[in-house]
C-alpha cells in the first residue's frame, strides 16, 4: 500500500517539503487603479508567501498600466501557485516569471538592477577613502558638503550590498534602496 508517496506540500498536512526554495523575479502588469498594489501585497501576506523586494511604477501612461517587479522566495510548487493566484486578481493583465523565462531562453538569470542612495558623513581619512571607493564602484556624488556625501549607486543587488557594507565603518548614516527592477535579455518584451 501507499507505494508511491508524493508529498505535495499543502498547508493542511505537515509533510516534509522535498523541494528547495528558490528566489524568483516576477513581472506583473496591472491596471494602475486605486488598491491594485494592496491586492497584490494582500495576496502575499494572506497566503503566507514571501516578498524579498517589490517595486512599482506606471510604465505605460496612455494605457494606465503599471509594472510591478516582485522578488519572491519559494519552492517551485509554491512559485507556480503564486503566479496563478496573481493571475486571478481582476486588474492583473499578465504575470511573467522572469527567472523561469530566462531559463527557457537559455540564460542564467534575468537582467536585474537596483538603485540606492547612500549617505556617508565624516572627515579626514574616512572621507577620502569613501570618495575613492565610490569612484571604484562607479557611484555618483549627488549631494555633498564638507561633512557628508550622498552617493547614487546602480547595479546588481550584490554590488549594492557590498558597497553598503564597505561604507559602514566610513560613517554610513542612511540608505534608501528602490528594490529590484528587472527584464529579460533579448529583443522580446514580457
Amino acid at each position: 500500500m501507499n507505494a508511491q508517496l508524493q508529498p505535495t506540500g499543502s498547508a493542511y498536512f505537515i509533510a516534509k517539503e522535498t523541494e528547495r526554495p528558490e528566489n524568483h523575479t516576477l513581472s506583473v502588469l496591472v491596471d494602475n487603479e486605486p488598491g491594485v498594489l494592496a491586492r497584490v501585497i494582500g495576496l502575499f501576506s494572506g497566503r503566507g508567501y514571501n516578498i524579498e523586494s517589490l517595486t512599482v511604477s506606471e510604465t505605460e501612461h496612455e494605457k494606465h498600466l503599471s509594472r510591478i517587479t516582485i522578488v519572491t522566495r519559494g519552492t517551485p510548487h509554491v512559485l507556480e501557485q503564486i503566479k496563478h493566484q496573481l493571475e486571478r486578481i481582476v486588474p492583473v493583465h499578465r504575470v511573467v516569471d522572469l527567472t523561469v523565462l530566462a531559463g527557457e531562453l537559455g540564460q542564467d538569470r534575468p537582467m536585474e538592477r537596483e538603485l540606492a542612495l547612500v549617505k556617508v558623513a565624516g572627515t579626514g581619512d574616512h572621507r577620502v577613502e569613501a570618495l575613492r571607493l565610490a569612484e571604484a564602484f562607479r557611484a555618483n556624488v549627488i549631494d555633498a558638503n564638507t561633512e557628508h556625501f550622498i552617493f547614487e549607486i546602480t547595479g546588481k543587488v550584490s554590488k549594492i550590498e557590498q558597497f553598503i557594507a564597505i561604507m559602514k565603518p566610513l560613517g554610513l548614516v542612511e540608505v534608501c534602496r528602490t528594490g529590484v527592477a528587472a527584464m529579460n535579455r533579448g529583443p522580446q518584451g514580457m
Partner: peptide
Amino acid sequence: LNAFSPNSKKIHIDIDPSSINK
C-alpha cells in the same frame, strides 16, 4: 495528502488555473 490515491493518474478539469496542482 501523502497517502491520497497513491497509484492513480489524475485528470483535473477546473476553470481556475490556481486550483490545478494546488
